[in-house]
């Protein structure tokens, strides 16, 4: 039985974001991949291939359900229909983990299909905590909250992101999903060292780690503007940041996300293998 994190029932091993085109490859030989993550919203249909594949996969692998549409950071109340769909999926699948984002995507009944940012203030803190309490009460389980990729800052913010996440976790009892690519992207875009973020981050609350690729652009002043695209290989500085994080957190369930320009299975599996060796290195050292 592999060791598991306190804040998740996923194994402290490498996983990947599941893409339907990889179904056969994964069922035949998943290589170093020991668990899978799905986007909740893609499995909220009534039946057919998506749910049939998920049923097969869940018989072989621990599954993490990762929501992208709950709009936990939103100003308005959570959508009761969407909450009901989420509960239906989680009750049926009984996944090893459920996570969502510190972001919003729905406003005034419209869904924008992107993770949009919120200012970090006492009032947004209360609102996010209310939403997380509502989700955890409904699902009857702890959830993990993921840090966003930031492209800009809000003048009205009074909390630094790590402290904001820490306070949310303290008030709601949720765990955290630490996306180290998002940390790298935000740190580059907003001009601080990513290691500073990790040092300030409540590392003991991490139940899962994410890795992914990003694109490079420039802002109006010619400064680097990194964009979280999940469409490329993880870059070396992010692998280094993972190693820096794992030394502090110990081994954690670590996931590679690749959502656009999805490569053939061997390319994604090679990324997972690299995450697995980073986990192995920290297990050996411990």
């Amino acid at each position: 039985m592999p060791a598991r994190s306190e804040h998740s029932h996923l194994p402290n091993a490498a996983g990947v974001g599941y893409k339907p085109q990889h179904f056969q490859s994964i069922m035949e030989n998943a290589g170093t991949v020991e668990w899978l993550e799905i986007h909740a919203e893609n499995y909220m249909g009534d039946g057919g291939r998506p749910l049939a594949q998920l049923r097969h996969l869940s018989e072989r692998f621990p599954i993490s359900v990762h929501g992208v549409g709950l709009s936990i950071g939103g100003e308005g109340p959570l959508d009761p229909d969407h909450l009901a769909r989420l509960k239906h999926l989680v009750d049926w699948l009984k996944p090893a983990s459920f996570s969502e984002h510190l972001a919003w995507s729905t406003h005034d009944t419209h869904f924008y299909n992107d993770l949009l940012p919120l200012p970090y203030t006492d009032s947004t803190l209360t609102r996010v905590c209310d939403h997380i309490n509502q989700v955890q009460d409904l699902l009857g389980r702890q959830m993990l909250l993921e840090n966003p990729s930031s492209y800009l800052a809000f003048a009205e913010s009074t909390w630094a992101e790590p402290a904001f996440l820490n306070e949310i976790a303290k008030r709601t009892g949720c765990g955290l999903l630490l996306d180290v690519n998002n940390v790298f992207v935000s740190a580059t875009n907003l001009g601080y060292r990513p290691q500073e973020y990790i040092d300030a981050y409540p590392i003991d609350l991490v139940g899962e780690i994410h890795l992914g690729g990003h694109d490079e652009d420039e802002d109006d002043h010619g400064r680097p503007l990194l964009i979280d695209s999940h469409g490329a290989e993880v870059v070396d500085p992010v692998w280094s940041l993972l190693a820096y994080t794992l030394v502090r957190s110990g081994p954690k369930p670590t996931l590679v996300e690749w959502d656009t320009d999805v490569p053939d299975w061997p390319v994604l599996e090679a990324e997972a293998a690299r995450a697995a060796s980073a986990l192995h290195a920290v297990k050996v050292a411990a």
Binding site: E41, M44, G45, G69, L70, S71, H110, F111, N113
Partner: peptide
């Protein structure tokens, strides 16, 4: 017509 639901399907 932005989406009226998070279910992009």
């Amino acid at each position: 017509h932005p989406p009226s639901s998070p279910l992009m399907m």
